[in-house]
Amino acid sequence: MISLSQLLFAYLATAITGLALLAVNARNPVHSVLLVLAMFFHMAGLYLTLNAEFLAAVQIIVYAGAILVLYLFVVFLVNLKEEIRVKRFVVSQHYAILLAIGLCVLLVSNMDSFALGISGPWTIEAIQQTTHIKALGRELFTTYLLPFEITGLILLVAVIGGLVLAREDKATTKGNSDDENAETKGVHQ
């Protein structure tokens, strides 16, 4: 018997796949970005079914609210109404399809070897008791402190890199008002 959550998962999975395919195939870059937005929503829904509500919210805030908007910025600035049609990179489409099917078969055939990981101390009940954010924060700043700090450092490098690029830009072309935008991108990415 299929339960409600399984049905939900089936819907979300097909929607994510379908939207991703549509996004790749859409002619209009803005439509394509929007399809990706819808896909992010379904991914957030997937996180919700896994009791990861904080992750779902962050998915929407960071990916949909910030990163995708910056993509939209770029698409607008480039001002592509329709996709530019160029000659294919590969010789024949058939090879690509063959490759994709091969990859798919490989993945499906290895389905059995997927195993559930060891469940840690954070069961659903435990998380609900300490609330999601507290649990996440505690784990990030104790068990995963080193990876967290490394990530922070990498992001800092990106920020500084963005700032340096913006400053150089200012030195060569005086009074360029785009440097704020450059900063924005630096902080977000």
């Binding site: 919210a57 929407i60 949909a64 910030a66």
Partner: peptide, 19 residues
């Protein structure tokens, strides 16, 4: 439990409508 974050998520979406 994530009420505040939810509001942020939604209000950032509203900017999509505008843009």
């Amino acid at each position: 439990n994530i009420g505040l974050i939810f509001i942020f998520a939604m209000s950032s979406l509203a900017s999509y409508g505008v843009v």
